[in-house]
Design a protein around this nucleic acid. Sequence first.
DNA 1: CGCTCTATTGATAAACCTCAAATACAGTGG
DNA 2: CCACTGTATTTGAGGTTTATCAATAGAGCG
Lengths: 224, 224
Amino acid sequence: MKDSSSIIFSNIPPEQQATILAAGKSIILAHKDILFHQGQPANTLHLVVVGRLKLYKVNQKGDEVIIRYIEKGELTAAVAIIRDDDYPVTAEAVGQTEVINWDKDTLDQLMRDYPTITINLLKTVAERVTELQQRYQELVTIRVEQRIARSILRLMEKCGVKQADGILIDFPLSREDIANFTGTTLYTVSRTMSAWSKKGWLKSGREKITITDPHSLMVFAEDL
Amino acid sequence: MKDSSSIIFSNIPPEQQATILAAGKSIILAHKDILFHQGQPANTLHLVVVGRLKLYKVNQKGDEVIIRYIEKGELTAAVAIIRDDDYPVTAEAVGQTEVINWDKDTLDQLMRDYPTITINLLKTVAERVTELQQRYQELVTIRVEQRIARSILRLMEKCGVKQADGILIDFPLSREDIANFTGTTLYTVSRTMSAWSKKGWLKSGREKITITDPHSLMVFAEDL
DNA sequence: CGCTCTATTGATAAACCTCAAATACAGTGG
DNA sequence: CCACTGTATTTGAGGTTTATCAATAGAGCG
């Protein structure tokens, strides 16, 4: 973590950051390991240090909706901890993933010792609201193909790595994941992406996507 | 406000509450007055004291999505203020409405003087995240009629007043409002509500809804 | 090399939106 | 008090989008 700054540490001197980090515990997760389950009492704040987490909600019918991906440097479970409530989502590792966590008592102490942390948490949570509002609006007002395009582009911006043939989304991402993230079905995602492959906008294999023509995809995504 | 407690004041002694209130300015709005516009720089935190606000987002096409109603005792613009960003939504008064507001500098000072306020803001914002995640999931996984039912029930719970013939939602609420809140069209809302009228679940006039059989509506709303 | 999981594709159907037109309602000014 | 006007609501017909179901093909793993 020393290399990449996390929002939680903004405006906190490096030596204090080390102390705060040291107050947490590290956990290593393998691909598809569950960090916490929706419905469990929330007692730990998590910071992703390596890899990423997939946050999803499941309803009684079994439908899975992906709420968010948590990348390196980002926090999760802040909302549940603050509300002193159950986790409203399940967090699953995507690829080998390391997280640092602080239990509630430790966090409370840290917030007392470093009031800036409270502000930083507030900023993190505020950002979530803005993002969710935006996606909520898009879900209501724009059609699936554009939503799929936007989802892929966002993931590309957050996790894309440059390759010779385009920008690779660097973690296992299935058609079903995209569907659950976008609010559609895996069939529609598959059809849509097939069409884009034919246009040369992207290439895709099993759980892998490379965007070969980001510009065209963006034009399509933002077209009114 | 002295009679009803607001989250912002939780764990703050009454005499301090008075000081905090006094640091804010009061504004009276008429029905449909705009408190702030989406896109304006956010520089004020608002607390609804009388009446309510409708928060909505508009896209370039002009589609309006209602994000939330802000009731008496609730805050708005916390997210925008904290992020030091533009308002992501427009806030419009529904009926005669009074708000107390604090500008950013005042709020910063208050947060320094009363650290509990920061925690309380965090709780407010955290609650928004949970609510939005829930509605996001519902938008993806459940059908319009159930979504309409749930929206009406939520508004009933927040703003319903008991009448001889049922529970009245006590503010002007059009079919279009419900549609924009639920992610559908006013036509679908109208058709759906007509059907429910025939079943005796509710009665409705122009911008008025009385739920005459909340139980049946709840069973329908929660049916899997 | 078979097994399992993921992806593709076609056919069909359901859900819901769009457009158009008629009707009801509330407030306003004569 | 009533006609008038501007909204809000209702309802029908028709079309589009997208989901669902079914069947097949491909990829990776032991």
